[in-house]
């Protein structure tokens, strides 16, 4: 790659590119000062745009008529309603600033945002389910494919016909740590026995090409 068009550069700033293309751009940035300046300006103006409308979130809200009392719709619904509890979750915190450092996220997450290391498994176990090793390896494959190859927002589905379990991995943003490691946020959705469990995470790619999940967290309970 010798030159970058604006579309690719903006996608790079947005963390929308796969790690390989990211690396090509980084290499180009390393030897081109003008390009570095352009990226810096893009990031600065993007940060301004990102915060320009936030005051609306905190300004007093009128009384909206939101219809029937107690209408509860899960953000990511399971296919069957059933009698399993439906969970309303707020995936909003996924919109992390590009430059978010992992450390900041972990601090944020541990301040009451349902930070959990293996909470997923515990939750499933409490509900009386366990994943088979075949489930686990299907999830692992989807995770690797999603993180390594897919554009953000692409859903990589997995199913295990033996257990009837399935789910999807959705890679979100790509960012780079100060030590140069590429990391990606992802959402891990699992459909087990008619219920849907979802969790967010961040995985980082080691220099040997192996993706390690560094943190897993439950989304904030938003919604109702």
């Amino acid at each position: 790659m010798n030159s970058i068009d604006d579309i690719t550069l903006v996608a790079y700033v947005d963390g929308e590119l796969d790690p390989a293309t990211c690396a090509e751009i980084e290499a180009l940035l390393a030897k081109n000062q003008d390009l570095r300046g352009k990226v810096r300006s893009l990031r600065e103006s993007t940060a301004l745009v990102r915060s320009a409308f936030n005051h609306v979130l905190y300004s007093p809200m009128p009384d909206f008529d939101t219809g029937r009392e107690g209408v509860v719709v899960p953000l990511i619904a399971s296919g069957s309603a059933g009698k399993h509890r439906q969970r309303v979750r707020n995936w909003w915190p996924r919109a992390l600033p590009l430059a978010a450092s992992l450390a900041a996220l972990v601090v944020g997450a541990s301040l009451g945002h349902h930070f959990t290391e293996r909470g997923f498994d515990r939750e499933l176990r409490n509900a009386g389910f366990s994943l088979s090793s075949k489930d686990e390896s299907a999830i692992q494959n989807a995770l690797i494919q999603g993180l390594e190859k897919e554009l953000s927002g692409t859903r990589v589905a997995w199913t295990n016909p033996d257990t009837g379990h399935g789910g999807e991995i959705v890679p979100i943003r790509t960012f780079r740590l100060e030590d140069g490691q590429y990391c990606r946020e992802f959402v891990d959705v699992r459909n087990v026995a008619g219920s849907t469990y979802d969790q967010g995470g961040i995985a980082c790619r080691r220099t040997d090409g192996v993706w390690k999940v560094r943190v897993r967290y439950l989304p904030e309970n938003g919604g109702v």
Binding site: F53, N54, V56, L57, M61, T66, N90, G222, G223, V224
Partner: peptide, 23 residues
């Protein structure tokens, strides 16, 4: 669903340029 209100309102305000219109 109600939890989506503030963000929908932010989006509507960004589109329309007016809080009244956004609401």
């Amino acid at each position: 669903m109600i939890g989506l209100l503030p963000r929908l309102r932010r989006f509507a305000y960004g589109l329309s340029g007016s809080l009244d219109e956004a609401d």
